[in-house]
Simulated scan of single mutants.
Amino acid sequence: MIRAVIIDDIEQARITFKKDLEVYAPDIQVVDEASGVVEGAKLLKHMKIDILFLDIQMQDGSGFDLLDILPEIPFKIIFITASDAHAIKAFRYAAIDYLLKPVDPDELIEALKKFRNHNHNEQDNYRLLNESLKQSNKVQERLALHAQDKIHIVQIADIIRCESNVNYTEFFFTNSKRIVVSRTLKDFEDILGELGFFRVHQSHLVNTKMIQEFVKVEGGHLIMSDGKMIPVSTRKRADVVKMLEQL
């Protein structure tokens, strides 16, 4: 059995979530629960678990206050949060699983599927998530990328371009590094689109700051800072020209 703890300051929310787990994840055993930061920290210091379902905002502090108290985090965390646009964006930057209240069964099943398939230590991701939540009015500077071997925390400014390969996305960086991630290009277009990245082709998302030239002949293509030629799709051509005029 997978050992789990639920920490949420609303008792009814804990009751409802335990029932959801009984129905949709019978292999998960809720071994204990807590109603806040202090109670939860005391509990986790003396208990070995596999997964923690953690509310973010509670009466006596945040879920991150609890994580700061713990000397280490040897378990997976799935955060549970109210519907908040900034919080959701922060989760996406940090590539950490979360569930919105009220919890949707399909999303619960999908989050638990990821939990069973990944054994990464995500401590750096938790720090990135906390950082992202705190800087609501600042431009996000870092992004977490889940590769097959590890989680990479990268500087967004160092990304030259992203290229789609079916359900995978390959990132290309200024230091010639490459990282392949098992998420679609559309996912990253949604995340990076407001940070100066532009989808110029079905298979290509580029950092506009890394564009060197736009060659208009033969359908049109971009020359990037690493010398690579990136095709511009016919239907994107006018948008690309307009975008370049505004740089």
Results as ranks from 00 to 15, higher is better:
Ile7Gln: 10
Asp8His: 03
Asp9Phe: 06
Asp9Gln: 06
Ile10Gly: 00
Glu11His: 05
Glu11Lys: 10
Glu11Asp: 10
Arg14Ile: 15
Arg14Thr: 13
Arg14Ala: 12
Arg14His: 12
Ile15Ala: 14
Thr16Leu: 14
Phe17Gly: 03
Phe17Pro: 02
Lys18Thr: 13
Glu22Leu: 12
Val23Tyr: 15
Val23His: 14
Tyr24Trp: 15
Tyr24Gln: 07
Ala25Lys: 04
Ala25Thr: 05
Pro26Ala: 11
Pro26Ser: 13
Ile28Gly: 04
Val30Phe: 09
Val30Asn: 03
Val31Trp: 03
Val31Thr: 04
Val31Asn: 03
Asp32Gln: 13
Glu33Asn: 14
Ala34Cys: 10
Gly36Gln: 13
Val37Phe: 11
Glu39Gln: 15
Gly40Met: 06
Ala41Trp: 02
Ala41Val: 10
Ala41Phe: 04
Leu43Phe: 06
Leu43Tyr: 03
Leu44Arg: 01
Leu44Lys: 03
Leu44Thr: 09
Lys45Trp: 00
His46Ala: 13
Met47Phe: 00
Ile49Phe: 04
Ile49Ala: 04
Ile49Asp: 01
Ile49His: 03
Asp50Leu: 07
Asp50Cys: 08
Ile51Gln: 00
Leu52Val: 01
Leu54Gln: 00
Leu54Glu: 01
Asp55His: 02
Ile56Glu: 01
Ile56Leu: 12
Ile56Val: 09
Ile56His: 04
Gln57Trp: 07
Gln57Arg: 14
Met58Ile: 08
Met58Phe: 08
Asp60Met: 11
Gly61Leu: 06
Gly61Ser: 06
Ser62Met: 15
Ser62Asp: 14
Phe64Val: 12
Phe64Ser: 14
Phe64Tyr: 12
Phe64Gln: 12
Asp65Lys: 06
Leu66Ile: 11
Leu67Gly: 05
Leu67Trp: 08
Leu67His: 05
Leu67Met: 15
Leu67Thr: 04
Leu70Asp: 09
Glu72Trp: 00
Glu72Ala: 15
Pro74Gly: 04
Phe75Pro: 05
Phe75Gln: 09
Phe75Gly: 08
Lys76Cys: 09
Lys76Asn: 09
Ile77Glu: 04
Ile77Gly: 08
Ile78Leu: 12
Phe79Ile: 06
Ile80Arg: 14
Asp84Cys: 05
Asp84Leu: 06
Asp84Met: 07
Ala85Asp: 11
Ala85Gln: 10
Ala85Trp: 01
His86Cys: 00
Lys89His: 08
Ala90Asp: 10
Ala90Gln: 08
Arg92Asn: 09
Arg92Pro: 01
Ala94Arg: 12
Ala95Lys: 02
Ile96Gln: 11
Lys101Cys: 07
Pro102Met: 06
Pro102Val: 09
Asp104Trp: 03
Asp104Leu: 13
Asp104Glu: 13
Asp104Ala: 15
Asp104Asn: 15
Pro105Thr: 11
Glu107Phe: 05
Glu107Val: 02
Leu108Gly: 14
Leu108Phe: 14
Leu108Val: 13
Ile109Leu: 03
Glu110Tyr: 08
Glu110Gly: 01
Glu110Lys: 14
Ala111Arg: 04
Leu112Arg: 02
Leu112Tyr: 07
Lys113Leu: 12
Lys114Asp: 10
Lys114Tyr: 13
Phe115Met: 15
Phe115Asn: 11
Arg116Ile: 00
Arg116Ser: 11
His118Glu: 14
Asn119Leu: 09
Asn119Lys: 14
Asn121Gly: 07
Gln123Leu: 13
Gln123His: 13
